[in-house]
Design a protein around this nucleic acid. Structure first.
Lengths: 133, 133
DNA sequence: TGAACGTATGAGCAGTAGTTCAGATGAGCA
DNA sequence: TGCTCATCTGAACTACTGCTCATACGTTCA
């Protein structure tokens, strides 16, 4: 790749060097972009916002997100792979919950900024860490 | 589309109703997903993080993001369309800057959570030199 | 005036992401 | 044991996204 062709043209090399040194590592940036990507779909966002208030089963999540159960299941699979949500099985039901404090905070900030009081403001609704079985 | 087929199957209709009523409007969710989508690309993320520290021209941004100027220009165009960045023209140069407090805070939160102190928020933390005196 | 420069933009391509459909898996019930 | 239910999964299709290439635009300089 001829990235050098692009990089040689710098107006303020000093400033570029400073910004580059302040830039997070490639892996961090990629991970961050990944997380934002998880939040970049309206259906998934609805699922996540719903989960902000506690655990829910797939069919209820599908109702809330107004998507098919299959679509939601695929989303949940992705979210699970990134450890953003966590499952609890009860018989043939699967109850999902938010499992990532970073994502919760991102959601929180985002909801606050659209003038929407986030559920995290009411922690009594959240399901605390399970204490056995 | 048979979305009703999905919605009729609810385990806890009461809870679903509650969560739905607490859910932001469709437009808000779509807008939010949109903003997250803007942050969901590593190259764009690098541009935005660079802009966190002040304005920069396209070619320097391309250097920082390690992308072609054309690619960066396209990103900037998208960011501009969403009013996330703002241009200042000086001769044939174009200096871009972050123009969205919401995005800035999202970036801030995200960087903090990967253990990276955002320079814009805590400039003195960027270089933790021993303050001996 | 014309050439070089920094940036902007459109077309086209390649890779990715979300959806649906069909079918599989495992749990509960008669 | 066989049926139904809730969920999961893979394949295929479609739509979107980001990239490069070519080129246009306005500015600066000789």
């Amino acid at each position: 790749m001829g990235l050098e062709d692009c990089a040689v043209r710098m107006v303020d090399p000093e400033r570029v060097a400073m910004v580059v040194s302040a830039m997070p590592a490639d892996d961090d940036i990629a991970g961050l972009a990944d997380v934002f990507g998880l939040l970049a779909d309206a259906g998934r966002l609805r699922v996540l916002v719903a989960l902000l208030e506690g655990e829910m089963c797939v069919c209820d999540l599908a109702s809330v997100a107004r998507a098919s159960e299959s679509a939601v299941s695929h989303h949940l699979r992705l979210l699970r792979a990134h450890r953003v949500v966590q499952v609890r099985r009860a018989g043939r039901m699967a109850y999902y919950r938010l499992a990532d404090a970073h994502v919760r905070m991102l959601l929180d900030v985002a909801l606050t900024h659209i003038g929407h009081a986030p559920a995290a403001a009411h922690p009594e609704h959240a399901v605390p860490a399970q204490a056995g079985g």
